[in-house]
Structure formats: structure tokens, C-alpha cells
Amino acid sequence: MPLHSLQHLSPTAVLGLWQLTETPAELWAQLPQAAAYQALMPATADASRQAQWLAGRALAHTLLQELTAATAADMVVHNDATGRPWLAGPTHNLTLSLSHSGEWVAAVLAAGGRAGVDVEIIRDKAQRLASKFLSTLEWDDAAAAALTAPEAANTHYTRLWSAKETLYKLAAQRGIIFKKQLLLSSFVPEESGEIPATLVLDCAETRHCICYCQPAPGYVLTYCHESFS
């Protein structure tokens, strides 16, 4: 099952989920501009990483047709020096964010503004590394949530990590310190909801809202789109 769902976040932004079941060969057959993508494929990617990489590009082209009705063959997804994806071609000021983990690939495509998306397998890694990316207040909130619902601790810590990854992509800037510049306010953990967030850049603070859900058992998804005012 390739394309899983499309969700319009606004008239100018769409979120897509792809459940990865195809082989790299099957995904190559779905991509326009195959020669261009063959030149861009990371040389060290194994078969699993190739499939995730290709599915991300296939999903980006699907969102492109959904949002703009543009000819997919006119666009090619590149990555800049920071690893962020961007569309080469007549992009109409399009912003693209991509993420993949396990068998899931997620993307947000927006006409104007900025966007971030992250999908993660739920595991204990985020809890083990929490001191490296959570502020003191976030640490206290997470510990309290884990005491209240210990069976959901891995999900909650993975959700926090994912939310910060989405906020990081929204910032579009390297060298960010996650525990000092990407801040999450207190919220009541549920299966889906919103996390108030603050981005601290160049001594200025901006407020944001990170949406979260579980697209499938064992996974967490976070995303955000904001139009420029």
C-alpha cells in the first residue's frame, strides 16, 4: 500500500503519508525524471534507505499534483547543504519537508510560508537521550507524565523528540541547541493533539503550534505549517 493518505492543512498546504511496501525497483518506475534522481541518489544508501529516499520523492510528486496540478515531470527534489529538501523547477514558491522512519514516509508541501514534518518509530531511545534535548522544565513535565502513565512513556518521549525535530525543520537553520532554542510548553498527552512551542533565534522568540498523532501503531507523527503574514 503506497500512498496512505492526503490531508489539506490549509488551502496552501497538504500533508501526505506513504506506507512503504515497494522495492526500490518498483519505486523507480513511479518516479518522473528517473535519470535526474539516479544522479542524486546517495551513493552509500542500502536497499532500505534507497526505498525510503525514493518513496519520499514519489510522495513529493504526488503532493505537487494535489496542491498545484503542476506537471510532476517539471520538478526535481534536491537537498541543500543542510540536508533540507527543495524543488528545482517552476516551483511557485513551494516549501517541502520530508521525513521517513521504518515503513512510513511523511511530507508537507506548502505554497508559501514554512513547514516541518517528522515521523518516528516509538522506542526507548528518546527517553534514554532525553537529557540531551529536553530543557529542565520539559524534563520535569515528561517525568511527571511517565509516572502517570508508565506504559506510554516511550510514546511520550518519542513524541517530544519528534516535535522538536519538526520545530527544527521549521527554523531552517543549522547549529540550533535543542534544549535551549526549541522549547515545548506543557500539554496533556493524548493520542492526537497540539503542542505549544517556542523557537528562540537571534535573541527573538516566536510562538508555534506543533500537531501530533499516531498514524499507525508504533509510530508518532508531528507536523506544522505556517503561512507568511
Results as ranks from 00 to 15, higher is better:
L183D: 08
I176P: 01
E205I: 07
F187R: 00
P189S: 06
L183G: 08
A197G: 08
C203D: 15
A197W: 08
S192V: 05
L182D: 11
E191N: 15
D202K: 04
C203T: 11
E191Y: 13
V200A: 13
E194Y: 00
G175E: 08
L199F: 11
F178K: 04
F187S: 04
S185D: 13
L199C: 13
L184S: 00
E190P: 01
G193P: 03
I195A: 00
G175S: 11
L199P: 08
G175I: 07
L199E: 10
K180H: 10
F178D: 10
E205W: 03
F187C: 07
P196K: 04
C203V: 05
I195H: 03
V188N: 02
P196I: 00
R174E: 12
A197E: 07
F187D: 06
E205G: 05
T198Q: 14
I177V: 03
V188Q: 10
L183Y: 10
C203H: 11
F178T: 05
I176R: 12
V200D: 07
C203P: 02
I176V: 14
I177N: 03
P196E: 09
I195T: 01
K180N: 03
Q173V: 01
E190Y: 01
Q173L: 10
I177G: 01
V200Y: 13
A204I: 04
I195Q: 09
L182I: 05
K180W: 05
E191G: 15
R174T: 12
A204W: 05
E190T: 10
L183V: 14
L184K: 08
E191R: 15
Q181F: 10
